[in-house]
């Protein structure tokens, strides 16, 4: 109804009443005899947009914002699952955290896995995207294949990788055995466990990032490359001097998103672990900060301390995000 009226020729309105500015006709319409529908439609016009976005904000409020703020409150208390709130202790949980070797270990693991996972992942994604951006036979097949790991179920991922990285019967160790290399205790040796987890992360996320890069590359005008070719620039040079600079905003976007995602790393190390205790190996070799949060809160029932760790992690993510932004603007202003 609304759209019909709004679309009606101006002359029709004119016939009813003199024009009094853009807001008047609506006001007048409300007084029209027998125009209940019109009144409703004006409420509809004003209220509907809020109604439509309301579900998101209601859900975000209930499951996002409220828990976020409530966690701050909980982190200032001694708080357990069974006993509930056991008293205000101020910043004690935060003080404890800074002298907690397990927290530093988990932070070291998280940052370490982040570095060895994300850097190769983004580089490989760039190269993959660049390859697919050239004339390749069966392009859409490869594009589809790249996204497959991303949509594979986590349960399947867990089964496959636990078979691959088994110490006794694992496929990789058996292959190493044929080459005469001693079996590797993938879950026991800290840096090997990092490598295995980084491999799982990259397997799942490289294709996703490659598709983002590919989309960005396809918007780079072809004539720039043609001009460069005419000037005799090699493919390598074109990649570094055209593709990379043109993709800079996209690269920054993926770096930020990956940083946020990797700081909260949980799924891959959790399914890599044996058992559900979130220990991250026999000695916390690959226990990430999120796993420590889970362990403290849901395994040990120490909600207060778990919340404090979660908040420190949130602050770290914000801090890293800010560093990213500052570096980005530096790079922008430099060029």
């Amino acid at each position: 109804m609304t759209s019909l009226q709004r679309g009606a020729p101006p002359s029709a309105r004119h016939a009813d009443a003199p024009a009094k500015g853009p807001s008047r006709p609506q006001h007048r319409r409300r007084k029209d005899p027998g125009s209940r529908g019109r009144f409703l439609s004006s409420v509809d016009l004003k209220a509907s947009p809020y109604l439509f976005i309301a579900p998101f904000f209601l859900l975000f409020g209930a499951f996002g914002l409220f828990p976020l703020l409530y966690t701050v409150w909980v982190s200032f208390h001694e708080w357990s699952l069974i006993g509930g709130n056991e008293g205000f202790i101020g910043l004690d949980n935060y003080v404890r955290l800074f002298s907690d070797a397990k927290f530093w270990n988990s932070l070291y693991n998280t940052l370490g896995i982040f570095v060895i996972a994300v850097i190769p992942q983004l580089l490989v994604a760039l190269l993959l995207a660049d390859t697919l951006n050239r004339a390749v036979r069966g392009k859409s097949f490869f594009q589809m294949t790249m996204i497959l790991p991303y949509i594979t179920s986590i349960a399947a991922l867990a089964i496959v990788f636990s078979q691959l990285f088994g110490s006794e019967f694992g496929l990789i160790n058996q292959a190493l055995g044929y080459l005469g290399i001693d079996p590797i205790n993938w879950r026991g040796e800290k840096y090997f466990s990092w490598g295995a987890i980084a491999f799982m992360i990259d397997w799942r996320w490289t294709g996703y990032n490659a598709l983002i890069y590919l989309a960005a590359m396809q918007s780079v005008p072809k004539d720039v490359y043609e001009a460069a070719s005419l000037d005799g620039a090699s493919r390598m040079r074109q990649f570094f001097q055209i593709t990379i600079p043109m993709l800079r905003p996209t690269i920054i976007f993926t770096v930020i998103i990956s940083t946020i995602g990797q700081m909260q790393l949980f799924t891959e190390p959790a399914i890599f672990d044996t058992g559900g205790a979130m220990q991250g190996g026999t000695q916390g070799q690959f226990q990430t900060v999120m796993m420590l949060v889970f362990q403290e809160a849901f395994r040990y029932g120490n909600y207060g301390y778990g919340s404090a760790i979660a908040w420190v992690l949130f602050m770290l993510v914000v801090l890293l995000g800010l560093i990213n932004v500052v570096m980005t603007s530096r790079i922008r202003s430099a060029t």
């Binding site: 088994g166 110490s167 006794e168 019967f169 694992g170 044996t274």
Partner: peptide
């Protein structure tokens, strides 16, 4: 000890393979 974490796939494989 064969050092196979209990309930893991490796451990189950150990039952199957007389490890």
């Amino acid at each position: 000890s064969a050092s196979l974490p209990i309930w893991s796939d490796e451990w189950n494989a150990g039952i199957q393979n007389n490890t």
